[in-house]
Simulated assay, not measured.
Amino acid sequence: MSLEQFSSLLSASTHNFANALPVELLLSSEGGLQTFYAPFDHVNAGARIVLCGITPGLQQASRALDEARSQLRQGASLEHAKQAAKETASFAGAMRSNLINMLNHVGVHTLLDIESCARLFDTHRHLVHYTSALRYPVFVDGQNYSGSPAMLSRASLRHQVETHLAEEIRTLGPQCLYVPLGPKVTEVFQHLQAQGLLKAEQLLDGLPHPSGANAERISYFLGGKPREKLSSKTNPVVLDAAKARLLAKLATMRSENRMD
């Protein structure tokens, strides 16, 4: 699927995408799972780092569709419309600020030689590729999909992983680094790593998912909430171990960069 196939429909549409996605954009149904098209096709082939979420939610999908519709109506090329849509919508909202704070906290900005990972969303977008394990938005019984059922356990979801995400990894090449957001996305990358699509040293895993619903884990990861005040829903041992592994891997990379 691509914007080419939906451009005429999108240009003519007066649909309010923020409320729900129209049935004309439905790509597949599997039980309570529905996958819709939204313009997240653009791949920044020159990226040095990839930020990978689970799947675009309704907020991100509606922003991407609105931007693509606006670009197409202004006469933009399909490629420009795809790029603008993706850059406008990727990790939009509170998720973006949480992500920037966590990336800066572990020092990814120093690895990329930029002042802050906020620049990955404005002046230094050429360094980053934004994507999701599931390229196109998925809903479970009408609600945003958040990783359950597991992505590799359902044919329609596994197809997205092994077709779209695998294709992006091949395009981006062996020097690119990947930041999977949360353990569910890490599982997907470990599956693709086992298939030989990328190496362990390309994975910068360990960040909690940046969703606003994950506020306590994020606060603890950033050092903002003390261990003794955590609820039973947050396991500090797991977070501490993941963070230590990530910091060690980043320290090794910075050392290797200085030796190059």
Score class of each variant (00 low, 15 high):
Ala94Pro: 05
Ala200Met: 05
Glu115Ser: 15
Ala215Asn: 03
Ala81Leu: 10
His80Ser: 14
Thr35Leu: 13
Phe221Tyr: 14
Lys199Glu: 15
Ser29Phe: 00
Leu134Trp: 08
Glu67Asp: 03
Gln60Lys: 00
Thr110Pro: 00
Arg254His: 01
Arg170Ile: 12
Asn44Phe: 03
Gly57Leu: 06
Tyr220Cys: 06
Val161Glu: 03
Pro22Trp: 09
Arg227Tyr: 00
Asp141Gln: 13
Ala64Ser: 14
Gly107Pro: 02
Ser232Gly: 01
Ala92Ile: 07
Ser232Tyr: 02
Ser231Cys: 09
Gln202Asn: 15
Ser7Tyr: 01
Val140Gln: 09
Ala84Cys: 11
Thr55Phe: 04
Gly147Glu: 08
Arg254Cys: 09
Ala18Asn: 10
Thr131Phe: 01
Arg48Pro: 00
Ala133Asn: 06
Glu24Cys: 08
Leu21Ser: 10
Leu152Glu: 08
Ala81Cys: 09
Glu24His: 11
Ala118Trp: 09
Leu239Arg: 05
Asp205Tyr: 07
Ser77His: 10
Lys199Ser: 15
Gly31Asn: 09
Pro180Lys: 04
Asn144Lys: 07
Gln195Met: 13
Leu207Lys: 04
Tyr136Ala: 03
Leu134Met: 11
Lys225Ile: 04
Lys82Arg: 15
Gly147Lys: 11
Arg154Trp: 00
Pro226Thr: 06
Asn44Glu: 12
Gln5Asn: 14
Ser90Val: 09
Pro39Ser: 08
Val179Ile: 13
Leu134Glu: 07
Arg245Leu: 14
Gly206Ser: 07
Phe6Gly: 04
Arg125Trp: 05
Leu112Val: 04
Asn104Cys: 11
Val50Gly: 02
Arg96Leu: 06
Thr252Phe: 09
Gln5Val: 02
His126Val: 08
Thr123His: 13
Ala244Pro: 05
Glu162Lys: 04
Ile54Pro: 01
Asn101Val: 00
Ala251Pro: 00
Glu87Arg: 15
Met253Leu: 15
Gln202Pro: 06
Gly212Ser: 04
Thr234Ser: 13
Leu25Tyr: 13
Asp260Gln: 13
Leu78Tyr: 02
Ile54Trp: 01
Lys86Trp: 05
Gln60Glu: 12
His105Asp: 13
Ala81Pro: 03
Val140Trp: 11
Leu192Cys: 08
Ile169Pro: 02
Val43Tyr: 06
Ser29Tyr: 00
Leu10His: 00
Phe36Ser: 11
Leu172His: 01
Tyr136Phe: 15
Leu21Pro: 10
Glu24Thr: 13
Ala18Cys: 09
Arg125Phe: 05
Pro174Tyr: 09
Val161Ile: 15
Ala242Thr: 01
Leu165Gln: 06
Gln83Asp: 06
Ala84Lys: 12
Arg245Phe: 07
Met95Asn: 03
Phe36Arg: 11
Met1Ile: 11
Leu222Lys: 05
Thr14Leu: 10
Lys82Gln: 15
Phe189Asp: 05
Ile169Lys: 01
Ile100Glu: 07
His42Leu: 12
His109Met: 07
Glu256Phe: 01
Ser8Pro: 00
Ser13Thr: 09
Glu30Lys: 03
Ser2Trp: 02
Ser255Ala: 14
Val237Ala: 14
Asn144Val: 08
Gly46Val: 03
Gln190Ser: 10
Asn214Trp: 04
His42Asn: 14
Gln83Glu: 15
Val23His: 10
Ala85Gly: 13
Gly212Gln: 02
Ala213Trp: 00
Ser148Ile: 08
Tyr145Lys: 04
